[in-house]
Design a protein around this nucleic acid. Structure first.
Length: 441
RNA sequence: GGCCCGUUCGUCUAUCGGUUAGGACGUCAGGUUUUCAACCUGAAAAGAGGGGUUCGACUCCCCUACGGGCUGCCA
């Protein structure tokens, strides 16, 4: 049974980078008819906030990423300590007492001598008496997992065959001096006990995977299949981390990005498959294949989300937006027509408001100097009273007759005089909705 | 510094030694629509650099350059 998970830590809002990871795991589970677990990584009580847990769930729900189970790492601490005991019993776990500054110093020294900054395992040589003394002097030490110094290999779902020499990696600290369990351990215990079969995460975890494979093996668990997707960069190839603040899902939602637009992009960006607007999640699931993704860093430009959003809106029926349109104050009788007229001319639903105010209050006319007489003449010919969908045709035909103008030279000045803009919906449909024509005066 | 991954049109990418280097988005040009948008057709547009291996290299190997990641008592 295929089981995947998304394991965010509730220390902030989730952003496009997180979403990519979440979505890939979700799609794999759904495509296989398996289980998708939402696992809240809240082992750090300092930084984890309940508000972020709520926010994160809201964001996922907004996108339609439903989960089958929720797990809380903070409720599983006993499991992690049980695993730690196991490691201790088999001699793969040792206590070390270097302070952060001491470790820092060691690293710098190693670097200066041109050697890799790998923990030197000095603590391994400590006698029990020495450990007692250090413990009395400095308090409890950290617990490190003793790596087996061989090459660690796995076939990565995105990267292909990977081989990392364990000797080039420090023995990972799994439990802090204050007793807090760290990500590396918690993640491994959870994945094993929850039966996770596929782990998809960012390539920033590649080295973690190497050490985690050894921990899983030590604990006798099944090694899941790993896939590390490339990280997103900004449009110029710059690291996205600095800009992530403005790329939270909440921000995007506020800017009017539609869920399906965002999902359509994130499920394909960086893969060999074209980014196309998909109608629903099912279509996304069908076409998804993690093996189609490349391993090179992927440029992401928020701006690309808007054409997709526009395209999505063009395909929406009135029913889908009725509520939203009613909220603008559009009378129910006019609302379906309003949507039919505007939906091809908006980028996000926010743009609806602008069109509605224009229809309701009229627009400041834009009239070029050379068109002044023409517009005055045309306005004089515009019938008083309510206009219907044939008004535009009869009116412009009459104006054409009277002035000799035709084509763009006829219609564009009228469009600009009536709407104040050079772009907009079909004028024949605009006219009946336009309640005030300021150019008339 | 060490380790891992990478570099093909502007962007995302295809090609598993022999191709006119293909597609999608974007761009541009035409065409339709009496106007906007949409739509249709077409065009421009790419193998980081240098060495090998080979009859033949985008493809395999090495070096260089550049990009990303890791190198935490963060995740």
């Amino acid at each position: 049974m295929t089981t995947t998970r998304f394991a965010p830590s509730p220390t902030g809002y989730i952003h496009v980078g997180n979403l990519r990871t979440a979505l890939m795991n979700y799609l794999i589970a759904r495509k296989a008819g398996g289980t998708f677990i939402l696992r809240i990584d809240d082992t750090d009580p300092e930084r984890s906030k309940e508000a972020y847990v709520d926010a994160l769930k809201q964001d996922l729900e907004w996108l339609g990423l439903t989960w089958d189970r929720v797990e809380r790492q903070s409720e599983r601490l006993d499991r992690y300590h049980a695993a730690a005991d196991e490691l201790r019993a088999m001699g793969r776990f040792y206590e070390a007492f270097e302070s952060p500054t001491e470790l820092d110093l060691k690293r710098k020294k190693q670097l200066n001598m041109g050697r890799p900054p790998v923990y030197d395992r000095a603590a391994l040589a400590l006698s029990d008496a020495e450990k007692d003394a250090l413990r009395a002097e400095r308090g409890a030490g950290v617990w490190r997992f003793k790596l087996d110094q061989q090459r660690i290999e796995w076939n990565d779902g995105v990267l292909g065959d990977i081989s990392i020499d364990a000797a080039s990696v420090s023995d990972p600290v799994l439990i802090r001096g204050d007793g807090q369990v760290l990500y590396t351990l918690a993640s491994v215990v959870d994945d094993t006990e929850m039966g996770v079969t596929h782990v998809v995460r960012g390539s920033d975890h590649v080295t973690n995977t190497a050490t985690q494979i050894q921990i899983i093996q030590a604990l006798g668990g099944n090694v899941p299949s790993f896939a590390h997707h490339s990280l997103l960069t900004g449009p110029q190839g710059e690291s996205l981390s600095k800009r992530l603040g403005t790329l939270s899902l909440r921000d995007l939602r506020e800017q009017g990005v539609e869920p399906m637009a965002l999902l359509s992009m994130m499920a394909r960006l960086g893969s060999a498959d074209p980014i196309e607007m998909r109608a629903d999640m099912g279509a996304l699931i069908d076409g998804f294949d993690i093996g189609r993704f490349g391993s090179a860093p992927t440029k992401f430009d928020v701006a690309d989300l808007f054409p997709l959003t526009a395209r999505h809106l063009q395909g929406l029926d009135y029913d889908a937006v009725a509520e939203r349109i009613a909220a603008l104050g559009v009378p129910e009788a006019q609302a379906p027509l309003f949507w039919a007229v505007t939906r091809d001319n908006i980028t996000t639903l926010h743009d609806l408001e602008g069109w509605w105010t224009l229809f309701r209050d009229g627009a400041e006319p834009v009239i070029e100097d050379e068109d002044r007489d023409f517009i005055a003449q045309a306005m004089a010919m515009l019938p008083e009273g309510p206009l219907d969908d044939s008004s535009w045709g009869t009116w412009t035909a009459a104006v054409k007759e009277a002035t000799g103008r035709k084509g763009r030279g006829l219609f564009m000045p009228l469009r600009k005089a009536l709407t104040g803009q050079a772009h907009g919906p079909d004028m024949a449909q605009v006219l009946p909705l336009l309640q005030v024509i300021r150019a008339r005066s």
